[in-house]
Design a protein around this nucleic acid. Structure first.
Lengths: 189, 189
DNA sequence: ACCCCAAGCTAATGGGGTTAGCTTCGAGGG
DNA sequence: CCCTCGAAGCTAACCCCATTAGCTTGGGGT
């Protein structure tokens, strides 16, 4: 019988796709193996186990998210950059319901790519905030405020946490507007 | 041999305590049974299964959280109420790391207590926002902003998402201050 | 004292994760 | 051109957990 020709990267990519379909928590080595046309234990030649696979998905997703944020912010500044970045964040979470929740996992210090992905995202955020004149401690607190708001919003949205229809897009726009106003006059807070 | 004398309420209470110790996702019927000095299948006399148990924990936690919010807000108004409620929210999440994440589960429509708990929390939030003169669509959007910010913050905090020390309390205070300012001049957003 | 129902048990099934150890593909060097 | 050898993939086996079926028995109500 022919070989499947797998690599760790292929396994992780397929697992990420699957996570988006069935949810990160329901991701199972069994279904990944099935999807790749391989017996379950064969996966262990490429990843250390289920938890390691999840961690690799986290690294992949963090990197993709960092890319999306930086692409959205490039060439813009101030409110423009903030809005574009926020929209990109939400869009990534919506189109990748399995990968996104993995992005909150702390990076494995031994995975440089994952660590750098986190730094890249942070760097982009800092760049946007610097457009508001925020640096140092102010930037730290503003970053936490921004991340909290965005993460909370997309988490609740994807979990159906917002009861009823009631235009969610408008709520998001108002959230961004709130952040914009706050960042404009941050230090006195 | 003597009976254990279990009831659904006892099982759920112990499971919730355990969830706080080991994490909601690692909660297992096996360890709940062990903790209660009972064989695993015996639990099925009281709960329908693992998922149902998690749902009951969600109902319990939602109710506790609603209580905490309303207790914090009672007798206060405006910024005072906002700050007290936000602190209570964060405190609940910190002291109940297993229960808290369960609170984002949508209530089972067939569990009136759970549904009412959600409504109670929402009512409290609305009451606080009415102190800012917010009603109708404004209140809906403001509620979403508030919930997103709080949920995002405590989620990231508990997940170690905020790298490094850098006074987290201060960041939270600034977040609340941001919300306060935003709610003071909400409609124009 | 007895009845009877529900609490709790044991046994059995199925599924997923993990490890051990075997087989064999197929690329690279002779 | 073929032979070797490392790695890709497999089967078998084990453990843990969830769930279901069907039994046993404690202990409250008549």
């Amino acid at each position: 019988m022919p070989r499947a020709g797998l690599t760790p990267a292929i396994v992780v990519a397929e697992a990420a796709r699957l996570a988006d379909e069935v949810g990160l928590e329901k991701l199972t080595l069994a279904v990944v193996a099935q999807r790749l046309g391989v017996a379950l234990p064969s996966l262990y030649k490429h990843v250390k186990g289920l938890d390691a696979l999840r961690q690799h998905i986290a690294a992949l997703a963090s990197s993709e998210l960092a890319d999306a944020l930086s692409e959205a912010a490039v060439g813009r500044s101030g409110p423009d950059a903030l809005r574009a970045m926020a929209d990109a964040y939400r869009e990534y979470a919506r189109t990748h319901p399995g990968r996104y929740p993995a992005t909150t996992r702390a990076p494995d210090p031994d995975d440089p790519a994952h660590v750098r992905a986190g730094e890249r995202a942070l760097t982009t955020i800092y760049a946007v905030l610097s457009g508001y004149g925020l640096t140092g401690d102010d930037a730290v607190d503003a970053t936490r405020t921004l991340r909290s708001s965005l993460h909370g919003f997309v988490s609740l949205e994807s979990g159906g946490g917002f009861g009823m229809p009631h235009d969610v897009d408008r709520s998001f726009r108002r959230l961004i507007s709130t952040l914009d106003t706050a960042f404009r006059s941050w230090p006195e807070r």
